[in-house]
């Protein structure tokens, strides 16, 4: 009997870590964005997308709400809002 525990690429996607957020989540204002990509680059989850200015956003299914994107944004175009509010 072979019980070899191997996993396939992308299988962690079934684990929706967005449910971990308890307090705040990022809101991408898409007003003053200059498309520097820093938010996308520093996201520990890799859940931020976008490639031209004012196109960035995040996949809330996975975002844990750490807030590094909002801190790094040079134009303050990402703000952290209470979890209950609409993005």
């Amino acid at each position: 009997m072979i019980k070899h525990l191997t996993s396939k690429p992308g299988s962690s996607l079934s684990n929706k870590t967005g449910s971990w957020r308890t307090e705040v989540k990022p809101k991408f204002l898409r007003k003053n964005c200059i498309g520097c990509k820093m938010c996308r680059l520093v996201c520990p989850e890799g859940c931020i997308f976008g490639d031209k200015k004012n196109t960035y956003g995040c996949d809330y299914q996975y975002c844990k709400g750490c807030g590094n994107c909002a801190v790094i944004c040079p134009k303050k175009d990402i703000i952290m809002i209470p979890e209950g509010e609409k993005e």
């Binding site: 992308g10 299988s11 962690s12 079934s14 890799g46 859940c47």
Partner: peptide, 11 residues
């Protein structure tokens, strides 16, 4: 390196 890993927020 896909989403859904269980690192702490801000890891």
């Amino acid at each position: 390196f896909a989403c859904g890993h269980t690192a702490c927020a801000g890891c």
